[in-house]
Structure formats: C-alpha cells, structure tokens
Design a protein around this nucleic acid. Structure first.
Length: 569
RNA sequence: GCCCUUGUAGUUCAAUGGAUAGAACAAAACUCUUCUAAGGUUUUGAUGUAGGUUCGAUUCCUACCAAGGGCACCA
C-alpha cells in the first residue's frame, strides 16, 4: 500500500459517509485525477451519478455534498469546488506534496518502489527464431516486454524474464532441405553474415516450394528425423545454426541493453518425455480427438459453430507443433514457479487467435485461474508500400541495419552519446503507443528525435543535471521549503509510483511514457521561466530541490522504459 | 464466407462512460548579453456513416462502409 492509495481511500471514505447521510444506499464512489491538473488533484462524479435517484440536479447535489464535507474536511484537502456539469474537485494542500517531494530527495530512485513481495510473473518476450532474421518485428516484442517486466518489478512483483527462443519446428526441416540442395554450411559459417546466408536459403526454399510442393513434404520428413533423434547429422546442423544465431542475438541484446533470466528454447520442451506428459494430461481430461490423421483439441460449440477452430497438438506424422511445446512449457513453468504464476506472452497480434486457443485449452485443463495467462499483443510493422514484412518473402528490415542507421542519425547531432540517444529514439517510439494498430515503417518516424520522443526526455534530464551541477558549484544545497506554493510540476512528480502501478496493472507501457512526456513539458516550462541556480535568490535551494526531484523521477521512469540518460547531449 | 483488431487535425498517436477531445510532426509568427534552443510561447486544424443505451458516448450496443490480421498439420 503506498501513500497515494491511503490518501485516495481516505477521501473515498469521507465522500461515502456524506453520501450515506444524503440518503444514498451503498454509494459507489470513484475518485480520479481530472484530465486537466488545474481543475484540482482529484475529482469525484458522485453528484452526476446519483442526482437522478435523489430527484435533484447534479450541481445542487454537489453543493449539498460540499457543504457537508466542509464540516469535517478530509485529510490534506485544501479546497473543494464544483465544476462543469457537477464534478466535485479537490485540491490538496501544498504541504502534502512538498512532504512527498522531500521523500523523493531522501529516497532517490527507491521512491515509490514497492517492496512488497507479490506474485511471480513470467514475461516471455523477444523470442526470435533461430536461423531467421532478427528484424524490426522482434524489436517491438523485445522493447515492450522488457519495459513491462521493469514496470511490474517496480510494483513489487517477482519477475522472470524469459526469452522463448524459436529453436524447433518444421522450419529446420526446410532449412535442412535447402542446405542439402543449394548450400554449404562450412562456407556459410565463414561468411560475413551467416544468418543472412541462412535466411537467403530459407527464402529460396519458399520460392522453390511454390513450384514444387514436394519440397514441403521433404522438410517435414527431415524435421521428423530430428525430433525422433534418428539423424545425428541433422542434429549437428541444427546445433550449428543455434550457435550462429545465438551469437548474433547476443550482439543485438547487448546493443539494446536487454537481459534475460532464462533463455530456454522451444527444443527444451520438445523432448519425448515432455510431449508425452502433455498428451497424457490432455487424454486424461478427454480433450484429445483424432481428426484427419492429426491429434487435435476441439472447442465448445456455440450454436452451430465452435468457439474457435480446432487446435492441432500432434501432426499426422506424429511430430510436435508449437501448441504442444507451449503446453509443455506451461507445465514446466507451473512446476518451477508455482501454480499461481502469471505468464505473459508478448507476441504480435497476428497470433491472437492462436493464444486464445491455447489459453482456452489450458482453462479446460484447469491449469490456470482467470487473468493468469496474458497475451500482450502488438500491431505489426508494415512497409509503406503496403504488405506485411515476411521472412518467407525475404522483404525484411534487419534490426542491425536499423540500429546502425539510428546511431548514425543521432551521431549527426551528437557524437558522444549517439548510441544512447539512438536507443532512446527507437525504444520510445515503440513504447509511446498503445494501440495494437499496425505501424507503418518510416525511417524518420521511427527515429524521431524532437517532440514527443526519447531524446526529448533525455535532454530535459541532462539539462536538469547541468543546473544541479552549477548549483553545487555555487554551494546551493537543494532543500524543500515546506511553506512554498506548488504548481503542476510538483503535483505531477508525486504521482510517479501511482502511474507505474497503473501501467503494470494494465500492461501498458504507454501510460508511463505519456506521463513522462507530460512531466518533461512541465519541467521545461519551469526551466524556461526560472533561473534555478542563483546564490542571491533565497528560493534557489527550493528550486534546485525541485530540479533534483525531477531528475530522480525522470531518470527512474526512463530506466523502467529501458532508456539511459547520457552524460552529455 | 466466418472470426479478431482498428477507423480521431494534412500526417503519426493520446483520451479508466465525463468537464473546453489532448500531444507531436508538418505550416506560419515570435523566443538564446541565464545554468544545454534536441528547448519555450502563439496561430491554424479532427471523433468513418446511420441508429440505439445513458443525466452524459471518441469510449458501450446494432447495422453499414473502409483498412489490416487470422481461420488444420508454419511460429
């Protein structure tokens, strides 16, 4: 329980009591922040909701409620007013915020961090496929997943970051066929970019397979040999591909500054024992049926049609499929992290149907409670000319190229911090949006360094630090003056933990992102209108303290989004 | 054909059923003899269409229109 929750609860209780006095039974009181902070710190729409029931108009009811509230003003409330159609707005006393600001200065980046040891949340993200390109498509999952993990961790959850590597499946059969027909692994290994060579083969496979569908069958046969452990040769090729891919991935994670707790690939869940376990459990619940040669799960009927199309668990040739391995993964995770673990899959929205099928199956198995399985879906990245970015078609944008371009662009403005700035631009661009709407790929948009962007936030922070450095050299000691007035900046700063918590509950990093933009705008305004470090100004210690509080909150917030603050910009 | 998303300013995006629908980019005009102008201040400009529910709808419901994704052995 953090401080702001106490405050809200207090206010709620006061309003509830008044409402009961007015003759409202079991009043439902909602407290929210008004859109515009100048209306007040909190507002309630209670008068709008109950005016009809009490046969009066909202404004008259609001006035009566306020009159009653004023007899015994709730803690910290400085003034109450009516606005608009009948909102009751509460403005809190400056002292409350100034006390909180003092805590920010004392606690540094621990301010607002929940120490509660809440449940374990496993966040599965990034999950690139071996021998396939690490493209801008995976960038979204990597960035969003990492931020959500950070945010939940701040709110006190025990986090497991899991990179669910796509290192198993028919794709290897395809690659094996392609290698045998048109490639040479030894030479590929020596080449400048082995992954690009492998992808070229993968693309060629799909081109040729269109003319000659028999290739697909060959690929499935190869995969069957691999999965059943009957071909040491294919196994060796597979191991080589993993080695080459992992090297490449590590380079990219290094650049992005993303780390994982576990990197268990799908192959780990594809052992005969684990697959057998999945089958046994499904058979035990009588969920498996044979259909057209495959083993599938059917879903409940709604009218004439089924809720979802059937889900294949075992293919006709007896090999596993992604659903098999995902089910095995969840059995394993339940055993390892406990039955109450929450499991989040950060995967593109194209897989929405699949995850619904998967979750429904797990629900029928009785494995999880409501809300324990979460799919954070992001929109696809599309090309301007139209069309999906697809490995099969070979029209990919390599993440490496994207990063290089971003660093180059950032370097034109500032050499020294080019990498940090470039990462901020890329990451923030992904995190500021909520909608599962597709993103049209556009270099300029992708790397925006002005306006609502990562670099804008970094810049405001760097500038604040520059002020702090000057204040220090002048011997000004940042001190909150508890008697001073507060503006939006102070009030907004205090909301930080509350915002992080909401972002976590809703699994939406953009809630934090837009808070930070708002906060930076308030600070930049403050900065433009005040000389902060000035030894002759008696208010300087207070202003410096505000600047420091801003620095702490901003740097902390950016950190949760995976963005570093550079020394200079 | 069926299912799922999404339609907001010229463009890219916001807005737990609430107040004057917010930003940013682009366009126009200001603003560094102050600690970082990647900044600040102005101006112009938007809820796909038609109904419904509600005191109140960008938000919920229905139909239509438009874009994208998915629908059995790929992940």
């Amino acid at each position: 329980m953090n401080k702001s929750q106490d405050i809200i609860q207090n206010l709620k209780t006061s309003i509830e009591q008044v409402a009961i006095k007015m003759g409202i039974e079991n009043p439902e009181v909602h407290i929210e922040h008004p859109d515009d902070i100048s209306y007040g710190d909190f507002s309630s729409n209670i008068a709008l909701i109950y005016s009809k029931q009490l046969k009066t108009n909202p404004k008259a009811l609001a006035e009566k409620i306020i009159e009653e509230l004023k007899k015994e003003m709730p803690e910290n409330v400085e003034s109450v007013s009516i606005a608009g159609p009948g909102f009751i707005n509460f403005r809190f006393a400056s002292k409350y915020f100034l006390n909180q600001l003092d805590k920010i200065l004392k606690n540094g980046n621990k301010y607002g961090r929940s120490l509660e040891n809440k449940k374990t949340v496993l966040v599965e993200y990034s999950s690139p496929n071996i021998a396939k390109p690490f493209t801008v498509g995976h960038l979204r999952s990597t960035i969003i997943g990492d931020a959500i993990a950070n945010i939940l961790n701040f709110s006190g959850y025990n986090i497991v970051r899991d990179n669910h590597l796509g290192d198993w499946g028919t794709q290897f059969g395809k690659l094996t066929v392609a290698l045998e027909k048109w490639g040479n692994l030894v030479e590929i290994e020596k080449s400048e970019s082995p992954i690009k060579e492998l992808v070229a083969l993968y693309v060629r496979f799909h081109e040729e397979a269109e003319k000659d569908p028999a290739l697909e069958d060959m690929a499935r046969e190869k995969f069957q040999l691999l999965e059943e452990g009957n071909s040491p040769e294919i196994r060796k090729t597979w191991e080589k591909c993993i080695e080459l891919s992992k090297k490449e991935f590590e380079r990219i994670y290094e650049q992005l500054g993303v780390k994982f707790d576990t990197q268990i690939g799908e192959s780990f869940y594809a052992t005969p024992e684990m697959i057998e376990k999945v089958m046994q459990e499904l058979v035990g619940k009588n969920l498996i049926k044979e259909s057209e040669g495959a083993q599938v799960v059917f879903f409940e009927k709604i009218g004439e049609s089924e809720k979802y199309p059937p889900l294949i668990i075992k293919k006709t040739d007896g090999t596993s499929i992604y659903a098999t391995r995902d089910l095995a993964a969840d059995i394993y995770r339940k055993e390892k992290y406990g039955n109450d673990v929450t499991i989040i899959n950060e995967v593109g929205s194209e897989q929405i149907l699949y995850f619904r099928q998967l979750y429904e199956t797990e629900k029928m198995m009785g494995w999880f409670q409501e809300g324990q399985r979460v799919h954070i879906a992001h929109g696809l990245l599309r090309l301007k000319e139209g069309g999906k970015i697809s490995t099969r078609k070979g029209n990919v944008i390599w993440l490496e190229d994207l990063i290089r371009e971003a660093v180059e662009r950032a370097g034109k403005i500032n050499q020294e911090s080019a990498h940090e700035v470039a990462m901020a631009a890329l990451k923030f661009n992904d995190l500021k949006r909520d909608s599962p709407q597709d993103i049209i790929f556009d270099w300029d948009e992708m790397m925006s360094m002005t306006g609502d962007s990562g670099p804008y936030l970094q810049y405001s922070c760097v500038r604040a630090r520059s002020v702090l450095a000057k204040a220090e050299s002048l011997g000004i000691n940042p001190t909150i003056n508890i008697e001073s007035k507060t503006e939006n900046l102070e009030r907004l700063l205090v909301r930080f933990p509350e915002v992080v918590e909401r972002a976590g509950i809703e699994y939406k990093a953009n809630i934090l992102a837009s808070y930070l933009i708002n906060l930076a705008a308030q600070f930049n305004n403050f900065y433009a209108n005040n000389i902060i470090a000035d030894e002759k100004d008696p208010e300087s210690p207070h202003k410096t303290a505000l600047t420091k509080a801003f620095d702490i909150v901003m740097a902390n917030g950016l950190g949760l989004l995976g963005i570093k603050v550079p020394k200079r910009m």
